[in-house]
Design a protein around this nucleic acid. Structure first.
Length: 124
RNA sequence: UCAGGCGGCCGGGCGGCCGCUCCUGCAAGCGGAGAAAUCCCGCAGGAGAGGAAAGUCCGGGCUCCACGAAGGCAAGGCGCCGGGGAAAUCCCGGCGGGCCGGUUUAUCCGGUUCAGGGACAGCGCCGCAGAAAUCAGACCGCCGGGACUGCGCAAGCGCCCCGGCAAGGGUGAAACGGUGGGGUAAGAGCCCACCGCCCCGACCGCAAGGAAGGGGGCACGGCAAGCCCCGCCUGGAGCAAGGCCGAAUAGGGAUGCAACGUCCGUCCGCGGACAGGCGCGCCUUUGCGUUUCGCAUCCGGGUAGGCCGCACGAGGCGGCGCGCAAGCGCCGUCCCAGAUGAAUGGUCGCCACGCCGCUUUGCGCGGCGGACAGAACCCGGCUUACAGGCCGCCUGACGCU
């Protein structure tokens, strides 16, 4: 919910939101996945989230900024989009977000990746 | 071979690479997170969505709460018979009614469908149309008689009155049974034959019920899914149930001090009676339970923080036996998803299947497509959705013998 007002980048296959945690600038990259009822029934929504989760597993270690929370929102075309195109969408969005604040990306995120997370107060 | 109907079954297969959850075994450290409870971190092996997992419409298991007795009331549900089943408004088989079809027209056969107890307990309703809609009725009509200072040569016609009829017309979902014949002024179960209907009913069946035969000219309409009557059944909430472990705050209990709705007794601890509030579906009788104000100390409970519940079950598969079937019994064998930020996947090939195009017609090459849909405590049903395919039975058409 806090990521809602943060920076966001939209591509054909995915919408990515990013928020840096001020109190934990070198912490792990965290990610959450969501799909609204607008894109389909439970089977479609699950498939969309699985594809996004797999794509994030491949790309976040390369382009994610440490100490940041990401939210990946599935779109209507997430399920039908060819796999390489979906990867391109997410990679492009991640790079744009990394460049927007704090200069060029400071290399690959080194910290261990958390389980896909959404609730930032989990360790509160 | 094709088409249609009904029933049953399946719901693509194999393999790379990279991941997720759980289980088992081994390993592990003065390891990490947290106040704690508790959780996490390595390696190996194994397992991992459905026929509907769906809708959440019924029935249970399980869990907690409630539940003194008697009588009455209210509310809801169910409703042919037998069997199955833990149970159900479920399943199987039968009976009866309606509808459809068939022929060898009979106590026949097949299919389909029905919330299928009661319409002599009572009330109510039956719109429109129609003359009349339930103690029913006479518009047109048919027949007989009479009057006429109407017409006509006449037979007769017209009009009015009295009486008879319920066959024909017309209305309707339904009009005091249908067809044919006799009969009559015209008619009518008025009489007769056949069909239908009602009553009794040998005998058959566990039963619902069936029924030979006999009797009766024949009336007794429908709706109970309008109220109702009869019979039977019925507490509530749900795994966010519920249990355990555990911070803070508020609230709770015990002890001490102050204080006690009224009255009585008192060994001053308290006990008894009455009154009121609350609870037991409602009411009555009766009977219970509980309760009647502030400060300090201790205790306990408790919060979506965690763990258990949480997967061996009305269980799956195979065989044999019983039964028309639903299903049941015995034996053998197997352990078969457990997420919760919600795992069971992502991606790439090959094969099979369907369609389209090219086609030197070799099933060779290329392209596209694969439904409905995701366990959430667990079972049994019902209902709804569904690409494609397989099997069985029935019906029809064509071909062959």
């Amino acid at each position: 919910m806090r990521a809602r007002d943060a920076d966001s980048q939209a591509r054909a296959g995915v919408v990515v939101q990013k928020r840096e945690r001020a109190d934990d600038p070198e912490g792990p990259v965290r990610a959450g996945f969501t799909a609204t009822k607008k894109i389909g029934n439970a089977v479609i929504r699950n498939r969309a989230k699985r594809r996004l989760r797999e794509a994030a597993r491949l790309l976040l270690p390369l382009h994610g900024r440490p100490g940041s929370d990401y939210v990946f929102i599935a779109r209507a075309r997430t399920v039908s989009r060819p796999w390489p195109a979906l990867l391109d969408d997410m990679e492009s969005a991640l790079i744009s977000l990394a460049r927007r604040k704090g200069g060029p990306a400071s290399g690959p995120a080194h910290a261990r990746r958390h389980r896909p997370d959404k609730d930032e107060t989990a360790h509160g």
